[in-house]
Design a binder for these strands. Structure first.
Length: 249
DNA sequence: AAACAAGGCAACCGCCTCCCC
DNA sequence: CGGGGAGGCGGTTGCCTTGTT
């Protein structure tokens, strides 16, 4: 159990590897009684032979009651891709925008599903950089306007779509807005989510606790080739929105 | 059916930051 | 102000499962 290291230093021999059902039960009981935090006292208080980090990891990633189980949905996938293109490997930040998902889960998902794809097409990096630059320029112009927007609301989203882009090109977004306004009524969470993810370029502000503090920044991640052709080539239905919402790869 | 390869994911490791004393 | 501990985070490893030959 304990290893003597000399100089009267005793190092605990922590258990490693997969957690057993009994260990899970002990950890859940511990959190019920003592709350989250003070993970280094779990070993002594709960009788677990796990170090604090291991306990915290197990709780945060697998035992927390608010975790969402099951596969990543297409909407979540879109958000992950968008935010990764924007923020890079800031897994914890990305996870904060997806309630019930953990940074570890998102990180694993990304690595298994997209790492190879992105390696396989290096040209996409240049495209992504160009898009990022355009977005940043536009963001500066729109900063004041953005600060006024503090609520996720479908109608507001539509109202903030620009009628022309940063180059003064009239506007795919405008067409989308008109067509969606007339033919689509995004009532479900999924539909709203798809709509939401179309406006990629949004920023979640982690310092602010309110979930509705999301700023819409533009509409520039649509595929460049799509400009001007949306109304003809792509009726504003759900499948179309899904295709529009996956611009980064 | 067996051997091997690839995929998927749970878990660990080490570094960094924050906070308290 | 600085030292140390705790927690958070991203990178990486390793094992189990699934697919392929």
């Amino acid at each position: 159990m304990a290893k003597h290291l000399g100089w009267d230093v005793i190092e605990q021999e922590w258990r490693k590897g997969p957690w057993t059902a009994e260990e899970d039960r002990l950890l859940i009981e511990y959190v019920k009684l003592h709350g989250e935090g003070r993970w280094n006292s779990v070993a002594s208080l709960a009788g677990l032979k796990r170090n604090g980090k291991s306990c915290r990891f197990r709780w945060v990633n697998y035992l927390r009651p608010d975790l969402k189980r099951g596969q990543i949905t297409p909407y979540e996938e879109t958000i992950i891709l968008d935010l990764h293109a924007r923020w890079g490997n800031r897994w914890s930040m990305i996870a904060r925008t997806l309630p019930g998902r953990t940074d570890n889960e998102i990180k694993n998902y990304w690595r298994t599903h997209f790492k190879k794809k992105s390696k396989a097409s290096p040209n996409n990096n240049e495209k992504a950089k160009a898009r990022l630059l355009r977005k940043q320029q536009f963001q500066q112009q729109q900063q004041q306007q953005r600060q006024q927007i503090n609520q996720v609301d479908t109608k507001k989203m539509m109202s903030y779509l620009p009628d022309e882009n940063e180059n003064g090109v009239p506007s795919l977004a405008h067409q989308v807005r008109q067509e969606m306004a007339t033919t689509m009524n995004p009532n479900t969470a999924e539909e709203q989510g798809l709509l939401y993810s179309m406006f990629i370029g949004y920023a979640y502000v982690p310092e602010t606790p309110k979930e509705d503090n999301i700023l819409w920044e533009g509409f520039w991640n649509l595929d460049d080739n799509a400009h001007g052709n949306l109304g003809i080539a792509c009726a504003p239905n759900k499948a179309c929105l899904q295709s529009l919402a996956t611009p980064f790869y």
